[in-house]
């Protein structure tokens, strides 16, 4: 049975901060992920609907793309920029995240609040060095996505709201690889890589993997092995080996820990080669 006793839909940030910051009342914003819990298991006593705060937007400026935190996952699928830029990985990741109906209600804030069904979206944000904007009334702070995801819900203090995700533009190239039971099933393992190349030298690398650790994360050892190196097949093999070695997966019905670790390497190799080929192409 749902614990919800009250429902609020604040019209402005001040009200939102007041409601969310009330002491002694278990209050939380309504954040639907792509793998939502049944409403009866939502544990807040006061549900706060943030839909009037104008957080459903996608804007583009010289800093990159700004995604309002209540932008739905389907909007990522539908918005052309996510198909044309970043080698289309945001479009793909969003499409893989859930069915179309769920994508219409799941929001970016919901996804970042519960990564269990949106591993690939998290990977795209990690690989693109996204930054999250956290707001309380008129106060705004930022945090790199990697830190935000690593700290989980502890990031937000009472009254704070995840307001925006900014994805910086980059000259690099992205690639996404996945394995799943069926084309539309949640990934067993997925890898997103980003390479910034100067000629054949990798000046910056991002390798983010889901399904190979308790939650989607960057594999820093793989990135370090790649950066400042000439792209080569042996380097790719080395990166794949490190990915497998560094994997700390939890096995389940989709795939065992051993398989997941192996796939971390296999898909890292593939994603690196795909990125390289995209760059070459």
């Amino acid at each position: 049975m749902s614990a919800i006793k009250e429902y609020y839909r604040p019209e402005d940030w001040k009200s939102a901060a007041e409601i969310l910051g009330r002491p002694g009342v278990k209050t939380a914003p309504i954040l639907v992920s792509t793998k939502p819990s049944p409403v009866e298991k939502w544990d807040m006593e006061t549900a706060v609907d943030l839909s009037r705060l104008g957080l459903d937007y996608i804007k583009e400026d010289e800093q990159g793309i700004h995604i309002g935190a209540l932008t739905t996952v389907q909007t990522l699928v539908d918005t052309p920029i996510f198909s044309t830029k970043f080698n289309g990985i945001f479009h793909l990741a969003a499409k893989h995240a859930a069915t179309g109906g769920l994508r219409n209600v799941a929001t970016m804030a919901g996804v970042l609040n519960d990564l269990s069904g949106s591993g690939e979206i998290a990977l795209t944000l990690l690989a693109s060095d996204a930054v999250v904007y956290i707001r309380k009334d008129q106060s705004i702070r930022t945090q790199p996505i990697a830190g935000f995801l690593a700290e989980g819900k502890q990031n937000l203090t009472a009254g704070e709201v995840l307001a925006e995700i900014r994805i910086p533009f980059s000259d690099g190239v992205f690639a996404l690889e996945r394995v799943a039971r069926t084309p539309a099933d949640q990934e067993i393992v997925a890898v997103v890589v980003f390479l910034l190349l100067s000629g054949s030298q990798i000046t910056k690398a991002r390798v983010a993997i889901s399904g190979a650790s308790p939650q989607p994360m960057r594999f820093l050892a793989v990135e370090q092995a790649l950066e400042k190196q000439e792209f080569s097949s042996s380097l790719v093999e080395k990166a794949a080996e490190i990915a497998t070695r560094e994997a700390k997966p939890i096995g389940d019905f989709r795939g065992s820990a051993e398989y997941r670790a192996a796939m971390a390497g296999t898909l890292t190799r593939r994603a690196l080669l795909k990125a390289w080929n995209l760059k070459a192409g």
Binding site: R9, V39, D49
Partner: peptide, 15 residues
């Protein structure tokens, strides 16, 4: 105009 599942929405959100 968008297809949404109603089992994971509060009725109040339809207001």
């Amino acid at each position: 105009g968008k297809l949404i599942p109603t089992c994971i929405m509060l009725a109040a959100q339809a207001d």
